[in-house]
């Protein structure tokens, strides 16, 4: 939302160049179980969907079940550094469905701790320079104190430069905060929302929030000028091993990602391949994944979008689908699965 220009870049024209993917690696999980893929996108991935979830229900069990269903085992996580990355883009007490609910963060932390991991929560709020205020307004600060969790302010941490492993945008490299570089796993924990420029924001777009404001600004306008879909794909290519846990219990529809309306769904989505998880989320929202610009870029490079290549664990997505309201603009309406347009 931050760029003054609506998205108009033709990503397809600029991605004919060879994309060298996954130098940083993304975790790939198939029916055969957990494995790490470096240098190649997984052809298959698993996505776990849990329904009838509430913020006061046993989310630790749900998340643990989901991780296990996607092939994650204790041996992968014991002693590892896990960075939980919620979405705290512009927290506001009056709009709690804008940001990842503290209960989901605490539950994920507990689930990973039970695996023997060392857990930190980190975020670089995209629109707010005062991170303490963001933690207050979201309720996450209080939750972190209750859960005795360390917080990494990714906007101001010391940074390290890493080559852009995606090379889809013109950016040669990305500056990443220390907590991201040092993490064995970065767990993208977005709130499932519509996005008034790119249609949907879930686990991939949420990783914009690992890039530091101290280098990219508030908003992270460097990324917008380099192309939102392109930089989303680049960040996901460059960030070390990533997992996704989507808070889709109370979602946002309409004028997301800030001012939309609450859309109760009662879902958690979990997976180790971000494009596959986000493609499933898009289908649940009534959108065609291949029409979402950054998912289209990710397809075949970072993971599968094709339903036939995504193994559904837990609930199947058609049983929980409920179309999200989209603003009445052509660039958003054409994303709808029922729009009649061929996939972009």
């Amino acid at each position: 939302m931050a760029t003054p220009l609506p998205p108009g870049r033709n990503a397809a024209q600029r991605i004919g160049r060879r994309a060298v993917l996954l130098a940083g690696g993304l975790a790939a999980v198939g029916a055969a179980g957990w494995r790490l893929a470096r240098g190649a996108a997984p052809r298959r991935a698993s996505v776990f969907i849990a329904r009838s979830q509430r913020y006061d229900s046993d989310l630790v069990k749900t998340i643990s079940d989901g991780l296990a269903a996607c092939g994650l085992k204790a041996e992968h996580l014991r002693g590892k550094r896990v960075l939980l990355k919620p979405n705290l883009v512009e927290p506001n007490r009056a709009i709690p469905h804008m940001t990842t609910h503290p209960a989901v963060i605490l539950a994920a932390a507990e689930a990973f701790r039970r695996y023997g991991a060392r857990v930190t929560v980190g975020e670089a709020p995209g629109h707010v320079r005062d991170t303490e205020l963001a933690l207050d307004e979201s309720g996450v600060g209080e939750a972190l104190r209750d859960g005795e969790l360390q917080f990494a302010d990714l906007n101001y941490q010391d940074v390290a430069w890493r080559p852009n492993a995606g090379r889809i945008s013109p950016l040669k490299g990305l500056f990443l905060p220390r907590a991201v570089v040092e993490a064995d796993y970065v767990v993208s924990m977005p709130k499932l929302k519509t996005h008034h420029w790119v249609g949907v924001t879930a686990s991939m777009k949420n990783l914009y929030g690992v890039l530091p404001g101290i280098k990219y600004g508030w908003p992270k306008n460097v990324l917008h000028h380099a192309g939102i879909p392109e930089t989303v794909a680049d960040i996901c290519s460059t960030v070390p091993r990533a997992l996704a846990i989507i808070d889709a219990i109370d979602c946002m529809e309409g004028d997301g990602p800030i001012l939309g309306s609450i859309k109760p769904m009662g879902l958690l989505l979990i997976g180790a391949n971000l494009p596959a998880v986000d493609a499933t989320a898009a289908r649940i929202m009534g959108l065609e994944p291949a029409r979402v610009s950054y998912l289209k870029l990710a397809h075949g490079r970072l993971g599968p979008l094709d339903e036939r290549m995504i193994s559904q664990r837990g609930e199947r997505w058609p049983s929980v689908a409920s179309p999200f309201k989209m603003l009445p603009y052509a660039h958003l309406q054409q994303l709808r699965a029922d729009s009649g347009s061929p996939p972009a």
């Binding site: 939302m1 003054p4 512009e90 707010v128 320079r129 005062d130 008034h196 004028d255 603009y329």
Partner: peptide
Amino acid sequence: ANYGNTIVLGRPLVPHLQP
């Protein structure tokens, strides 16, 4: 003031103390 935008797609944004 928000971080810098005022109205996007017809909707005024939310003010913050620091800016």
